[in-house]
Design a protein around this nucleic acid. Structure first.
Lengths: 133, 133
DNA sequence: AGAAGTACTTACCCTAAAGTATGCATATCA
DNA sequence: TGATATGCATACTTTAGGGTAAGTACTTCT
């Protein structure tokens, strides 16, 4: 007789956690290393897929698309495609995506205050930080 | 001719990313599902190890300790132990740990505004949210 | 004598996330 | 003719992280 595992314990624990912890609820949406970077890059406005790729060179196509889909499913961004050849697809932040700005901003502040040597580079990034939509 | 892999590509990519992205720098410190919850629970003040365990029932001891160590190494919290039996160990946020408050707060705001059904529960949590140190 | 509490540690396994590599469809450009 | 660009999809492999279970050291409580 084989015991069937209905769901991973990790998932159950995570569910438990984010039901009463707003912070974990957010991590469910933007947790992982790449999602915040993607959102960060979209704060400055709508971008084509290829532009995103160029501005985040270290990410692989598979992971980028995967995350874009998840972010779209979670309602954080909007995908628009024109049925032309070659394809023309753009991504932009949705309403709730834009509401992430204060979170990302607070993170950026923390980073500049707590990164030692790196802080200068971050401060430079902060200059381009789109302050308001 | 054999190509030798010197280090994992994941790590290299992450390094690349957080050198120029403050947001990813932060995710390196508090990324993962449990760390924000731990910090959240310490916002209200110093806690013993066993108190943390009770307030986060879903986490296993191994993972809790593992994360506490990482957070300590990253300078986000301070561990103090009294050499008594039974052991008496407390954890509290360091200066940079306390500076995470605006990040967690912005997350909590986002969660209450973007969680539909769950928002009421989050709003309840927000009442206890330690606004200032 | 033995159970319980405290703050861990260690060993082993399993899964989810990430990386690598390749393919596809179509049109335009050289 | 075939190279290039675009936005993906798919199959396979590797790695990091998390889960389970058990043990430790010492004391106080029963």
């Amino acid at each position: 007789m084989t015991v069937v595992k209905e769901a991973s314990t990790i998932q159950e624990n995570k569910t438990q956690a984010f039901v009463n912890c707003p912070v974990t609820f957010v991590m469910e949406k933007i947790g992982g290393y790449w999602k915040p970077i993607i959102l960060f890059n979209l704060l400055s406005g709508t971008k084509r897929y290829s532009e995103l790729k160029k501005s985040i060179p270290a990410i692989t196509e598979k992971v980028l698309i995967q995350h874009l889909k998840q972010l779209e499913n979670d309602g954080l961004l909007i995908r628009r495609s024109k049925p032309v050849v070659p394809p023309y697809v753009t991504y932009e932040l949705s309403k709730s995506g834009k509401e992430m700005r204060p979170v990302l901003y607070a993170m950026a502040i923390w980073a500049t205050n707590n990164s030692g040597k790196l802080s200068k580079g971050f401060a430079r990034q902060m200059k381009d930080f789109p302050a308001e939509k």
